[in-house]
């Protein structure tokens, strides 16, 4: 990579997505101390390659189910950036009209299923979207992004069983960053053989350890292709690392629960930088200036948008 024109097109597309996510989240982190975002934020910085790689394998008719740490997948699936930032600012033009906040992003038109802040809750809901896709013969598939912690909830096992039983077109993607808040896997799992656990449901699994966006994309392409052929669910466990604190804009290596050394190998192969280095510098420069403008416009849009008015309080309690 990139050896052929096709390869370079893919690399350029992946880079564009990665870079957009990174710049958005760094801007979120930059403005956060000014209190314009009065909402807890869970950044994906360092983990973007998963959303970027997986969503590259999807089509508009497909859905993604995201979590409260969902900025990356929202953007990668083509969620409306202005509406996302406006939502974080609590504005009426936000994707939830100021009723969701950072933890509940949604973009139905782009196929982004609304996020839940109760860990695991989204798993059966995503499975329901897959049931509907199958019954309605849309040809679409669902990708359900979850953290390692979410696999500990009972509904994870229950959903896997159901999805396998009904051969539903759903790809479960576990972003295993090794922590649930500050608690490492060793305090939560008796063994780390997550893929083995999932495989017993008759679900094909794959563990990706190399942190490579292209590996992730290829695995997702393969899984999605099998699924569109009626192959039923699949599971990817993708190792990654959260570079910032669990919630909030800062680094937290001074807190004592993990060491900065853990980040070092991940930072050394930062996918944003790595893909940039594969592309012609003028392409990179063009992409970067385009993204800078897009992101600046989104934050300016959020800033300038009006807040909801108190009279809006009762909108949408019922359909």
């Amino acid at each position: 990579m990139p050896e052929t024109p096709e390869h370079s097109a893919v690399a350029e597309r992946l880079y564009r997505t990665l870079r957009l996510i990174r710049v958005v989240e760094e801007e979120v982190a930059r403005v956060y101390p000014t209190d314009v975002i009065k909402s807890p934020v869970h950044l994906s910085i360092g983990q973007e390659f998963i959303a970027a790689g997986v969503c590259d394998a999807l089509e508009p008719r497909d859905h993604v189910s995201i979590t409260y740490r969902g900025h990356a997948a929202y953007i990668a699936k083509g969620g409306d950036l202005n509406a996302m930032i406006a939502e974080m600012y609590g504005k009426k033009a936000g994707c939830c009209q100021g009723r969701g906040g950072s933890m509940h992003l949604v973009d139905s038109r782009a196929g982004v299923i609304g996020a839940s802040a109760v860990v695991g809750t989204s798993i059966p809901v995503a499975t329901g979207f897959a049931l509907a896709a199958k019954r309605q013969r849309t040809g679409g598939v669902v990708v359900c992004f979850i953290g390692d912690g979410a696999t500990e909830e009972g509904c994870f096992a229950e959903s896997l069983n159901f999805a396998a039983l009904h051969k539903l077109p759903i790809l479960f993607v576990c972003e295993n960053n090794g922590y649930a808040i500050h608690e490492p896997l060793a305090k939560r799992w008796a063994t780390d053989r997550l893929c083995d656990r999932v495989a017993t449901y008759g679900i094909p699994t794959r563990r990706i350890e190399d942190g490579d966006t292209v590996t992730v994309r290829d695995a997702a392409l393969e899984a999605v292709a099998a699924m569109r052929d009626g192959g039923g669910p699949a599971f990817l466990e993708i190792l990654c690392y959260r570079w910032r604190e669990h919630v909030g804009p800062n680094e937290d290596f001074d807190q004592g629960y993990r060491s900065a050394d853990e980040k070092t190998p991940w930072a050394a192969r930062d996918e944003v930088a790595r893909l940039a280095a594969l592309l012609p510098p003028d392409h990179v420069a063009a992409i970067e200036s385009e993204i800078a403008a897009t992101v600046a416009a989104a934050f300016a849009f959020a800033e300038a948008s009006p807040f909801p008015v108190p009279e809006d309080l009762y909108d949408h309690v019922y359909a």
């Binding site: 009065k38 909402s39 609590g90 504005k91 009426k92 936000g94 100021g98 009723r99 969701g100 906040g101 807040f307 909801p308 008015v309 108190p310 809006d312 309080l313 009762y314 309690v317």
Partner: peptide, 16 residues
């Protein structure tokens, strides 16, 4: 609480 879901937007939260 107002008979709605709790909204995060500061203007709505104040009314909630």
């Amino acid at each position: 609480f107002a008979p709605t879901t709790c909204p995060p937007s500061p203007t709505l939260e104040a009314a909630f």
